[in-house]
Design a binder for these strands. Structure first.
Lengths: 137, 137
DNA sequence: GTGTTTGCAAAGTGTTTGCAATTTA
DNA sequence: TAAATTGCAAACACTTTGCAAACAC
């Protein structure tokens, strides 16, 4: 028989976010977090799951991505009207966007330097500053 | 009787872009360019047109926005997956995005200072660097 | 007249939702 | 068993497309 070993820290991450560690969420979390930084769309993650023989509906992939994002496990990136990317790297950093292929990639820390950030308009506060370097590739 | 005066420079802009100055294109160009910097979605421009008693179909608004963008008269901005904004200011500048209201606004020149821009990855060139300051307003 | 542009309605894409069936604790 | 989660299919919002009628030159 096959033993599937689920690292405790994944389960803990889910529980810590108030999310029951269901079969689907565990599987998606493994695809997302066990292999370095990723920038995935819902469709891409869904395809990865099916390829790995994990039966999940696309609706659940969307739900899960949003739940993970709300829990601070993912960050949603908008570079392309019409689709959302989810970044497993939630630390402060910026992106290259390859317009031709639609790939998104972290810019190594320190390679973008914002020396002046405007003050938030009256009555608002800054939630985030996104820098996207669009390249043709 | 009513005289409608169309400034020659608008016509010239259209012709210069290789676009026949049709009734619809002239009307949309006036809405876009005769009143300072704007950040509009297709729906918003369509509504503005109808309000101004200009009969244009939404499809034509989309076509026109893309033609103007291809001609360098507009710039398309992506801040919100699911809709595109078109900016009448095509010079080098950045944006505030009010997440609550969905409004987009230019950041005054000089209030964002990018001191380090990464070099483009091997085999690519940088097409644009976009800075979006997201505020809750 | 000839080629361009328009408007409509249909199709397309990515995403969300309602709800019954299933699963988790 | 009670509450949370899933999957499906339908609904959605925004955008694009195909094509006949209208328009610009």
């Amino acid at each position: 028989m096959t033993m599937t070993c689920v690292p405790g820290n994944l389960m803990d991450r889910l529980r810590g976010a108030g999310l029951r560690p269901t079969r689907q969420r565990i599987a998606l979390a493994r695809l997302l977090f066990e292999d370095g930084d990723r920038h995935l769309t819902a469709e891409q993650l869904h395809t990865m799951a099916l390829t790995a023989d994990i039966r999940v509906s696309l609706a659940t992939v969307y739900n899960t991505l949003h739940q993970f994002t709300d829990a601070g496990l993912l960050r949603e990136i908008v570079v392309d009207s019409g689709r959302s990317y989810f970044d497993t790297n939630t630390s402060d950093h910026h992106h290259f966007f390859y317009e031709r292929s639609g790939r998104l990639e972290d810019i190594p820390f320190g390679q973008v330097q914002l020396t002046a950030v405007p003050q938030a308009p009256e009555g608002t506060s800054i939630r985030r500053v996104d820098v996207v370097v669009r390249v043709d590739g």
